[in-house]
Write a protein that binds this DNA or RNA. Structure first.
Lengths: 154, 154
DNA sequence: GAGATATAGACAGGTACCTGACTATTATGT
DNA sequence: ACATAATAGTCAGGTACCTGTCTATATCTC
């Protein structure tokens, strides 16, 4: 086990390139499934939507993006007819996001996309390899931010 | 070895969050070193610059970004006085990028930034953990693109 | 119940990457 | 040598994130 090269490619480059692959894979998968108008950032909305409705601010916490990013995704989905926004009866500042009928139909596909890519990558790189990467990244994140912020810690 | 949770946090989310941490760490390190005007994408230029000059198109291959991204980085560095561009005597289409005196002074710091972050992360998460992530990501990339495209393949 | 603070969302603007189309020049193949 | 293809670089435009500021409403404290 000689360590011939302790740190040749900067970690940042590897992260960027793999992340790019991931995004492109998600996009291609949505396209294949016939939902070319749904883009990766929209998938979060489908994943976390609830029948009782959900606030944009809650979505931002779950998906770990900023308000503006999530707002834009919701607005686009609203324009495309996949979601509706209605005032929150319990909080006059807030508007709740609901899936439309059309949105409910798409949900399983949009939610499954991430898992689909996981599986494809497991096929080409080995599923334990992928799991190992995930666990390692998760541990690294936990140490970097001192606490589980992915909301998937359970 | 029970697999209690085969794939809870989508890999894409982990990659995005860790990459964000990385970028912020690089930015903070450059800032600490007193080079607040140098931003992460500029670091590549310093890393790959050569005394004989280098074409933007070569830089794009080494850093794995597109022409426009690299061109912008070079233009900004030119405006800041860190690099100069001169016509390539051997190819009238091309312009060669050279480090200015000022740029040469900054080079060690800009080049070292990635390694510095590596070391800091190794301290908080364990150096073998970091190495393991790098190797795993590298293997994954190789399998995804069928070939080593990082230019660090050894 | 008045005042400080936190939260929901809107608005304006920036960054680091991407794509595609275009011109000028160089390399290639017959 | 001449048509074709590849390459260097520019221009125009798009995406998915980010930051900071601002208003309206809620909550918490005294």
């Amino acid at each position: 086990m000689e360590e011939c090269a302790p740190s040749r490619p900067p970690l940042g480059l590897l992260l960027r390139l793999v992340h790019q692959h991931w995004t492109q894979a998600v996009e291609a998968a949505l396209d294949e499934a016939g939902f070319g108008d749904i883009r990766p950032p929209h998938a979060n909305v489908f994943t976390f939507a609830r029948p009782e409705g959900i606030k944009v601010s809650e979505l931002t916490k779950l998906a770990h993006v900023r308000k503006q990013t999530m707002t834009q995704a919701v607005e686009e989905l609203e324009r495309l007819g996949y979601v509706e926004r209605r005032p929150d009866p319990d909080d006059r500042r807030a508007r709740l996001v609901f899936l439309s009928e059309r949105g409910k139909g798409v949900r399983p596909i949009a939610m499954a996309t991430g898992r689909l890519i996981d599986e494809r990558w497991a096929e080409i790189a080995g599923s334990q390899e992928i799991e190992q990467i995930k666990h390692a990244l998760q541990r690294l994140l936990d140490r970097l931010q001192g606490d589980d912020q992915t909301g998937f810690g359970g």
